[in-house]
Design a protein around this nucleic acid. Structure first.
Length: 517
RNA sequence: GGCGCUAUCGUCUAGGGGUUAGGACGUCAGAUUCUCAAUCUGAAAACCCGGGUUCGAUUCCCGGUAGCGCUACCA
């Protein structure tokens, strides 16, 4: 088997330097949803692969039978796809390669680098607990390390279950050059004889990764810094097998605001949760990319192409980074604002549908939105364009902007408090409603003239009327320019809503008067 | 506890033996105005501590401290 493909001369593009196809992998375990930390690891792998025109492999590490769930694999794949992190090979499942791991364990045993261990988990746990109680450092004591062949045979004959452990040399050290962290080194005496194969025949992580990375001809292992201390163990395995070693690059961890490892306690941690909150995938990708890496030019909003072009492992930061939700929110609004309407529209439609606002009337062949007015797609596009600059997330459309899509909306209490204080309002709004009914044509200039005229006549500030009208039309204190809103909604709706607001206000006054003796 | 890694504004970071230590998010103030967002202007805000090397360290070295990681028949 050839580990690295160095086929023909065509690959020797650079003089004296054989060009090797870069092969990287992302290897999540289906014991949870895709965490943003995992997503960033996946992203960096993906960027590295694309930068080098290499291969990005997806592998599911489901060797922990108790904790792995197939649904989670699906969820992870969905999140990857949503983020746009397409893979070239896989997904491969470790659970389908068990035979291969047993083979490799046997091979290591044959070479004298591994041995069967008959200690039961209970025994080990007891020993560990005891050591801990006496505050002695614990490390596997090697009880089975030097059993004679006869002793092993006897235990096997007794039918005692056994695991396979790797035989770590008792002296010396293992070092490697990490592409992010530089030279890293550990003393063998600080390592224990770790388990390769569990007594149930399932591989542990160490066996699984090494076997797979070898078989899949992975050239660069890019993963979280929590694996730094595992690397020497794996290196020991490569060396024991006489196999070529991949390059290692470890990524700093992502922390919560309290500098603790990011977890559910901090709120949303999964990619899916951000999608559900109305985050755009390109915003999340951009944000994640900048968490631990800065492009040479220092640009913050970075198109994917530029990211691929500029990405280098060597410029990845070594220190952990706090996940700043505020900055992500800012970035999301940046992306939302600059997204072409053609792309934004379907996303908005989806949100409206989810919120039960746009029930879709399926026509012949194409779907027609049944929102406000039975707006045409063009109309909807116009509305979306109007609201786009003010949106923070996709959820704003069915949320704060609801009144643009349906007549069923409520008056925000805060908005009422702020702009519906003046006692003359019911009358003013009613009058305005009546006048707007006759304004011709119903344009930006004409509606503005009408409103300002009324304000002057009644000797009130235009702002008072404008703000009150905004609440009447949208239920919100925040919306686009009022006259744009009017034109957008159309005369009929504006007139009706003003009338409705006037009545609402009158009722509110009456209610109050009744409540106060 | 043992081993390892890391350390620049609140946060993400740039920088690097001599700098007014730069940018971004956030915060505050102002401009604009019909609200908000956007935009523009401005402000406050950082080199963990102690030694050493050096004419000079935030930068290099050592120690401390803190944080994080690993310390499983989890990954």
């Amino acid at each position: 088997m050839c580990w690295r493909r160095l086929d023909d001369g065509a690959r020797h593009a650079e003089v004296g330097k054989p060009m090797e196809v870069v092969r990287v992998r992302f290897a999540p375990s289906p014991t949870g949803y895709l965490h943003v930390g995992g997503a960033r690891t996946a992203l960096y792998n993906w960027l590295f692969a694309r930068h080098h025109r290499g291969v990005f492999i997806l592998r599911i590490e489901d060797t922990d039978v108790d904790r792995s769930k197939p649904e989670l694999t699906t969820a992870i794949l969905d999140s990857m796809t949503w983020l746009g992190l397409n893979w070239d090979e896989g997904p491969f499942y470790q659970s389908q390669r068990l035979e291969r791991y047993r083979q490799m364990a046997a091979e290591l045993e044959r070479l004298g680098h591994a041995y069967p261990c008959f200690c039961s988990p209970e025994e080990l746990q007891a020993k560990r607990a005891q050591a801990e109680a006496q505050k002695r450092p614990w490390k596997y004591d090697g009880a089975c390390r030097n059993l004679t062949e006869a002793e092993r045979a006897r235990r096997r004959a007794e039918g005692r279950p056994h695991a396979i452990r790797f035989r770590v040399p008792e002296s010396g050290q293992t070092s490697f050059e990490d592409r992010v962290f530089g030279l890293l080194e550990v003393e063998h005496r600080d390592l224990e004889d770790f388990v390769l194969l569990r007594s149930d025949g399932h591989p542990t992580y160490h066996l699984g990764v090494v076997a797979d990375d070898l078989d899949m001809r992975v050239t660069h292992v890019i993963r979280g810094a929590d694996h730094i201390s595992n690397t020497p163990k794996q290196l020991l395995m490569y060396r024991a097998l006489g196999a070529p070693e991949p390059v290692f690059a470890h990524l700093p961890l992502i922390l919560g605001p309290d500098k603790q490892r990011l977890s559910k306690r901090h709120g949303a941690t999964s990619v899916g949760a951000y999608r559900d909150q109305g985050t755009l995938p390109e915003a999340l990708v951009n944000f994640l990319a900048l968490l631990g890496w800065t492009p040479p030019a220092g640009k913050e909003i970075l198109p994917l192409e530029e990211m691929i072009q500029a990405f280098e492992l060597e410029t990845v930061s070594k220190s952990n980074a706090v996940f700043d939700v505020e900055k992500l929110a800012w970035m999301n609004s940046e992306y939302l604002r600059s997204l072409p309407v053609e792309r934004l529209l379907p996303l908005v439609e989806e949100e409206l549908e989810k919120a039960g606002i746009g029930s879709w009337v399926s026509g012949v062949g194409n779907r027609q939105p049944a929102v406000l007015n039975r707006q045409s797609t063009e109309g909807l596009k116009h509305t979306v364009r109007l609201l786009q600059t003010r949106a923070r997330t996709l959820k704003d459309f069915p949320g704060a902007f609801r009144a643009f899509f349906t007549d069923e909306f409520e008056y925000d209490p805060e908005a009422q408090k702020k702009f519906w204080k003046d006692a003359q309002l019911p009358e003013l709004l009613e009058t305005l409603s009546g006048r707007l009914a006759r304004v011709e044509p119903f344009t930006l200039a004409a509606t503005e003239q009408c409103l300002r005229g009324l304000a002057e006549e009644k000797n009130v500030k235009a702002g008072l009327l404008i703000n009150a009208t905004r609440v009447a039309l949208t239920g919100q204190a925040v919306a686009p320019g009022l006259f744009e809103v009017m034109v957008e909604l159309g005369r009929e709706r504006v007139v009706a809503r003003l009338h409705r607001a006037a009545e609402f206000l009158r009722a509110r006054l009456a209610g109050r008067a009744g409540a106060t003796p």
